[in-house]
Simulated assay, not measured.
Amino acid sequence: MSIDRLPQLTDAAETPRLVIKVGSALLVGKDGEPRRAWLTLLVAEIAAARARGQDVIVVSSGAIALGARKLGLARGGRGSLADAQAAAAVGQIALAGLWAELLAAHGLIAAQVLLTLEDLEDRRRYLNVTATLGTLLAAGAVPVINENDTVATEEIRFGDNDRLAARVGQAAGASAVLLLSDIDGLYDRDPRLEGAVRIPVVRGVTPEIHAMATGGSSSGLGSGGMTSKLQAAEIAGLAGIALAIIDGRPESPIAAALGAERGTLFCPPARSGRKARARKAWLGGKLRMKGSVTVDAGAAAALARGSSLLAAGVKAVEGSFLRGDAIAVLGPDGAVVARGLSEYDAAECAALMGHPSTEHEALLGYAPRSALIHRDQLVML
């Protein structure tokens, strides 16, 4: 099945599993208190989705904002990393309790899941998240997910729940991700400018699409902006998952936006080979690379045809990485063209680069592997 219209997100046949992301500015008012009336209506929509046969996973922001008010922290708890961690520790209890209470009113069980970047970057931990979410959904629970901001640091954190929602969608095998935002979609320029036009459907996030994005969150509460939403759309697309941005501000926002088909839908590209797609989607969605290799035009063209990366086409090696680490592949112009798991560590890559395979055994002192990055461990971007 292919999702190419917003109303399909409420069709259990087309979208059997849906991830809904709720931003801080929607869930928490300017007074630092939860917007209970709005959230009550959203939970009713989630309950309706469950009643028509859809699995629903919620990715909910708001813990830092809620905790900041309770602790009396300035700048909504985002004045420093220490403030954010302290606010999250307090706010997460309030946030989980709020979701549990409102879902229980519909006979639904909330399950809190706190994740860090490493939980989804490490393959084994990623598969554990997949298994846990599958078990919870099979048992009829509604997972409510947030980044574990109490322990996450600047170096090991998503930083926004847009990308987290896309990665959760991958791990859960979702059909679509729905981002409830304080804007009703992607515009061809800053939506505050006269003549700005909303783009209803995007087929492929190109450099031209990225150029339309603005980086900041208009609310001042959230940590993401349109740039993070486009990154989320790319992550989702690699897994064959549709992603939509809608205006979350109205009451019953899902019905309001999808009924009027007002928002932006990012359609995933066609992918083949489900098993390969699952692993490559995880690899393509990784946010941290341990290093990079730069390749010449011939190697870049060979990769585009589905070949493995051979050391002969490598012109430069950067970073400190080991065999099995994820690295970026840069084209001649410095743009990232692929990501893959290296068959060698950085020092070995540096020794082999530019040399044909026939010379590798003499250079290494042992029988070489078939490629620097095998095509089964490589994803084109």
Rank of each mutant, 00 (worst) to 15 (best):
V337I: 15
V113T: 14
R167E: 04
G291M: 03
A351N: 08
N148T: 06
G237R: 08
L309A: 00
L258G: 11
H360K: 05
I145R: 06
L117R: 15
L73Q: 08
R323L: 08
C349N: 03
T130S: 15
Q85I: 11
E155M: 06
M289S: 14
E361Q: 15
L102E: 15
S60E: 14
P143C: 12
G79Y: 03
W282F: 13
L330Q: 15
L71P: 09
L26R: 00
L309N: 00
R339V: 04
L179F: 00
A255C: 07
A346Q: 09
A256C: 13
L137P: 10
I3Y: 07
R189D: 00
I156T: 11
V28M: 08
A232M: 02
L372I: 07
R167L: 14
R69T: 12
D188I: 04
E121F: 07
A233H: 01
A256H: 15
S175T: 09
Q8V: 04
G225Y: 03
A74K: 12
V201T: 14
I209L: 04
G319K: 01
L117T: 03
D190F: 02
F321M: 14
A213G: 04
A257P: 12
S320A: 15
N161L: 07
I209K: 05
D345W: 01
R279Y: 10
G225P: 04
G134V: 03
P16C: 06
D149V: 12
A94P: 00
